[in-house]
Write a protein that binds this DNA or RNA. Sequence first.
RNA 1: GUGGCCGUAGCUCAUCAGGUAGAGCACCGGAUUGUGACUCCGGAGGUGGCGGGUUCGAGACCCGUCGGCCACCCCA
Length: 426
Amino acid sequence: MSNIRAIRGMNDILPNETPAWQQLEAVVAATVRGYGYGEIRLPVVEHTELFKRSIGEVTDIVEKEMYTFNDRNDESLTLRPEGTAGCVRAAIQQGLLSVPQRLWYAGPMFRYERPQKGRQRQFHQVGVEAFGIATPDIDAELILLSARLWHQLGLSSSVTLQLNSIGSNESRAAYRAALVAYLAQHRDALDADSQRRLESNPLRILDSKNPDTQALLDGAPELSEYLDEESQADFARLCELLTAAGVEFDVNPRLVRGLDYYNKTVFEWVTDQLGAQGTICAGGRYDGLVAQLGGKATPGIGFAMGLERLVLLMEEVGSVAHDSARADVYVIAGGDLAHQCALVQVERLRDAHAGLRIVQHVGGGSIKSQIKKADKSGAMVALIWGETEVDEGTVTLKPLRGQGQQLTLPLAALPEALDTALSVES
RNA sequence: GUGGCCGUAGCUCAUCAGGUAGAGCACCGGAUUGUGACUCCGGAGGUGGCGGGUUCGAGACCCGUCGGCCACCCCA
């Protein structure tokens, strides 16, 4: 019958792709460390209720994109569609919020969406969250951190920062009413999706891609006119700090968020090099979320970035440092006895040369075919044990790149000879 | 959930008025006795995504289904 395939939208990341991921992950880990953020590791599965209460009941994520199921105890569980909710839950539950906290995490997220470029059903995010700091200096810090990441990854010239403030819940509610009032007068001019959102989530109409809808919005009330004083002041301060730090940004008054918990600062890093899924990183403030999930009122702010999209972008701009070699040294043996002898010596070599990639040929075959494998492995040198070498207690060192000469030497001389061979050839 | 394009060897792709498939790369072996890269020779590998239909006959036409890509939508 037909073979079992991976689940749609849940991709294998193959050995030729993992170096880019490792590169990305290493840069992220080093950068967040440099800002004093601590890593937190969170479950992939949470109570469904957590996401309903944080993301919002009427969002698309909760309504139609979550992997929700009942466990054997008949409890409704959900594969996390994003990381902030779980992070906040853990911070409350583990009592991390009595002092300001800077946290980060990485891992797979799950959303039932139609797969396309830069969008899959299991995808990976890195999230960075800061709790207990209400002032906009932390907003600036997070954005500077993200900007540094792009710099480290060679992506700075490929991304731009979109910035906005969506204000307090009260000011946003007032704006929402005004927007609905305006759009309701022009209901017929709205596209079908926007008409539907008029009831469910009118602010989302602001970032509609429909040109007619966007044109209609030109005459609509502006969110910025409804901002409360504090939000205005904080946003101005944030802009000031970013400018002082030399971070360029575009204020986009129609930038909103698809998750309900955001307030005040929202931002997105976008690129035009990935097609339709151009947001590589997005976040904002969520001052009400901790209290909403049962914790003591604590301000919060954070962002998440999509690792698949970042890897795509890194490949797009050629900032992936790929080295095709899988080995530094390839070990060849002629016959079982020689293989056994080589096996022992190679383990000693690994003791002495930690970090060196030593691949020992297995599965037999002629010396010729083994040398072919050695060549294809990308190794700089081959070590050969044949009958002669075993009898004489020697080993043959054959350089595979450059014009070094092959030589047979006593085992005791091998470590040093290997060092020189590798340093000369590299 | 909607739409467009697509689904032939491991990979990239071809072929043909519909008559039961080919190339390049990769892989394996050989070109005298234990030595790669270049070259030459040879070999293996496909129930043409899956199921049904039309036909004397289908990979080629039709329908369905699954999958892929892109876009809508959504969002990281």
